[in-house]
């Protein structure tokens, strides 16, 4: 939808685009790109400015040989994948519900956006107080006569399947993706669907061939952001996870803050690995889902 500016006669206008892009790009290239390179360089134990001039693959070898690393990687993939999938599906369902007219729609739509600005740490604390074995839900289960000791309530935080971590992401990201889908749906209106209905399409067909392609670009972007976040976040797995195995980010942070500085290259290698894996998976996901949408 981009408008094309008529070619300008002034010579400085030829540099207009690079000039306007320069501030943002230089910040990103210097701060982000430069930082990434520094991390890479230090993962090889190489940083002449502080007198480290030897290049070594030891840190990378060390992390790949650590059993805990692979367990953590698997756990992190599980968390990111399940959290993204669940919140995407729930978000679409919520948006489809909330687009309809009903009493109090304005208030409820506002409520739906309410937890977008809530920091994840607070969400994590809320989930902990809600889902722990002596949390509010366990107490309700006790009231209902379903359990009489906390130990009978299933372990839902700091647990094996990372339920608590996933629940926090789903709680927050459903609203994030849902708001984007809702905005798309409302700006498009129901004309296309009505047209499809008049041509005899059933509910599922209308959703699959009309609504879904319309909302797909927004869903795609949002779910990528959610996956990348869930894959690399620290606070939530730190508060709601288990001591072993822990999420990759927590493992990397533990190595980074160890009183043995020799572990820092390993921390750098692990963080880069997180970055690599999440970028790779996102590229894969984009290719596949673009293809699916086209079909």
């Amino acid at each position: 939808m981009s408008a094309l500016q008529p070619r300008s006669r002034f010579t400085w206008e030829r540099f207009r685009i690079p000039l306007l892009l320069a501030p943002a790009l230089s910040v990103i290239l210097l701060l982000f790109g430069g930082g990434l390179l520094l991390t890479l360089s230090q993962s090889f134990g190489y940083l002449p400015i502080i007198g480290k001039t030897e290049f070594s693959l030891a840190a990378w070898q060390a992390i790949f040989q650590r059993g805990e690393f692979w367990q953590s990687l698997f756990l992190t993939l599980w968390i990111g994948g399940v959290a993204t999938l669940t919140s995407t599906i729930l978000a679409i369902l919520c948006a489809l519900t909330l687009r309809k007219q009903f009493r109090g729609k304005k208030a409820i739509t506002f409520l739906f956006q309410l937890n977008i600005p809530i920091p994840h740490i607070v969400g994590a604390i809320g989930i902990l107080l809600l889902f722990s074995q002596s949390g509010l839900i366990a107490r309700l289960a006790n009231l209902a006569g379903m359990i009489n000791d906390p130990a009978q309530f299933p372990a839902l935080v700091n647990d094996r399947y990372a339920f608590g971590i996933i629940a926090e992401y789903v709680w927050k990201e459903t609203c994030f993706i849902g708001t984007i889908v809702l905005a798309t749906l409302q700006s498009v209106g129901e004309d296309y669907e009505n047209a499809a209905a008049s041509l005899g399409a059933n509910r599922w067909q209308r959703f699959r061939y009309v609504t879904l392609p319309l909302i797909m670009p927004g869903v795609l972007t949002a779910s990528i952001l959610v996956f990348a976040f869930a894959f690399g976040a620290f606070e939530i797995p730190f508060l709601l996870g288990r001591r072993f195995p822990s999420a990759l980010s927590v493992l990397a942070w533990r190595s980074y803050t160890d009183t043995d500085l020799a572990l820092r290259p390993e921390a750098m290698a692990m963080s880069l690995f997180i970055a690599l894996v999440s970028t790779g998976l996102i590229l894969l996901y984009m290719t596949i889902s673009r293809k699916l949408v086209r079909e």
Binding site: S132, Q133, S134, D149, P150, A151, N158, R243, F244
Partner: peptide, 17 residues
């Protein structure tokens, strides 16, 4: 299971876990 910190056990004791 081993809680991450002693603080968590305080909560567990308080609630009879």
């Amino acid at each position: 299971e081993y809680p991450e910190s002693d603080a968590r056990i305080k909560d567990l004791l308080a609630n009879g876990e």
